[in-house]
Design a protein around this nucleic acid. Structure first.
Lengths: 200, 200
DNA sequence: TGGGTGATGTCGCTTGATGACATCACCCTA
DNA sequence: TAGGGTGATGTCATCAAGCGACATCACCCA
């Protein structure tokens, strides 16, 4: 193994610090280099200077290593939703959550692009992404109920918010236009409303 | 190995017929009896009178055995959507797809309940269910584009349809009321429209 | 200076998943 | 009617995922 020259700030383990960060970095690199299925946990651990057993102490499985920001994003969105003005309608509160998400993710489009391309090119990773979206929907629904929104409405507003988030985010990383993520989110919200308005 | 006494109708293999059906049945039973994680592929195969190797010849993985009707459902929904009147709006065409789904699934609520309870109680199965829903959204979107619906609208209408399907189906299997699945689907569609109508 | 703590390594096991090859019932044809 | 072809299955071997149990060692603190 290579010998990492490091400056100890807050040693977290026996050798180099921040084993979790090294594992995340190594996993991302290998998934890009040779693909998700062609990468074993042993490979990741080796590149991070750790063992496979240690990998599983930090991440539930091979996929989870790519989905760490999800919890923080969800928390930020729920906080924004709960803190929205009391007079706001359910969908307006959801709009506040989308604004928060845009602010949190809108900064580094290049990183989002790379991560997105890795995820979308492997079914198992798409699967995990969908679980995160389902968790987000549940959390947003909970936040709405906390605001006093009754149950059928809370569920639909939360799911609608996730649809807007997904399609908006996808457009943001796919199309190379110069709109900000926040602008696209808002626009997507209007589009969903327009589409459902002419229902049967 | 046990010796099964059987009456040959249409022998499909070397021994008893319909190995796929027996595997499906055995898997469902065992998932209900002892839970998904506590069931090994070897258990399923043994109960079906086959080997684990054969299980994987028929199903990609341990989860897929529960999601066989999905393809047929998707096909029926897309067909209904494509065959909807040319004058129908995108969401009206989606409504036709939801009607088709209701007709296909609305019959045996008890079976749906049992299957649903197995799936919702295991994260890995929920994950697979979400993949099927994503596939459905993609298929519905494709059907809409085939109808000449342009791209932002097609995507949103398809996703909206899946939201209605999921929440409607969940309400149908959860609440013990006497509404039919079709009625609930229609009602859900209206609720989504109402909720998004008061967006910010 | 000695023990406590926590992250990591080591070992071994079960299970999921797959490739390669053998086997056998059924069917079709010469 | 014998023979080969076909397809589903069995058998064997192997790799990778995931986890339990225990050992190890650096750091911290009394």
């Amino acid at each position: 193994m290579s010998h990492h020259v490091i400056t100890y700030t807050k040693p977290m383990g026996r050798w180099e610090p921040d084993g979790v960060g090294r594992l995340r970095k190594a996993a991302m690199e290998l998934y890009v280099e040779r693909g998700f299925e062609q990468t074993t946990v042993a490979d990741i651990a080796e590149r991070a200077g750790l063992t496979a057993r240690t990998f599983f102490r930090h991440f539930a499985d091979k996929r989870e290593v790519l989905f760490n920001g999800a919890a923080a994003l969800e928390a930020a969105m729920v906080a924004a939703l709960v803190d929205a003005p009391a007079a706001a309608t359910p969908m307006e509160a959801v709009g506040a959550a989308l604004d928060a998400a845009a602010e949190m993710l809108g900064g580094n489009r290049d990183y989002s692009r790379q991560r997105n391309s890795v995820i979308t090119s492997h079914a198992e990773l798409r699967e995990r992404e969908l679980i995160k979206m389902a968790s987000l929907a549940k959390a947003l629904g909970g936040g709405l109920r906390q605001r006093g929104v009754a149950d059928p409405v809370a569920g639909f507003a939360a799911e609608a918010g996730v649809v807007v988030f997904r399609l908006g985010f996808e457009r943001w990383v796919t199309e190379a236009d110069d709109q900000t993520l926040g602008e696209i989110m808002r626009e997507s919200l209007q589009q969903l409303r327009a589409v459902t308005a002419v229902a049967g």
